[in-house]
């Protein structure tokens, strides 16, 4: 097999844009007592930054803060208002 040309090819990887959590100005904070484990926030997260809740294990959702950009969709869409957006640093 002959070696091929230098091609503009990139392979899949996590974090191509780095730890995009650094983009945040606000971060989401969950009140686990209010979480009904509906996973609607998980569904609407464009950044894949929410770990799903598990009803059977009674585990609420949780965040991958490395990649959460702090858009606030989860807080807006939560039917129980269990998520609050807090300014970074507070």
């Amino acid at each position: 097999m002959t070696e091929g040309p230098s091609l503009p090819i990139l392979y899949p990887m996590e974090g191509v844009a780095g730890k995009t959590g650094e983009w945040r100005t606000f971060y989401p904070v969950l009140d686990p007592d209010l979480c009904i484990k509906c996973n609607i926030c998980w569904k609407y997260c464009p950044d894949h930054a929410i770990y799903r809740a598990d009803r059977e294990k009674d585990e609420p959702i949780s965040y991958d803060y490395d990649y959460c950009k702090g858009c606030g969709i989860c807080a807006q869409e939560c039917p129980k208002s269990a998520i609050k957006m807090v300014p970074q640093g507070e």
């Binding site: 974090g15 983009w23 950044d47 990649y67």
Partner: peptide, 19 residues
């Protein structure tokens, strides 16, 4: 769609892509 992509915060296109 792997985590840590370049879409803007709240991007609907990245969300639609993911699913």
């Amino acid at each position: 769609l792997l985590k840590g992509h370049f879409a803007c915060a709240g991007c609907g296109s990245a969300l639609a892509f993911r699913h």
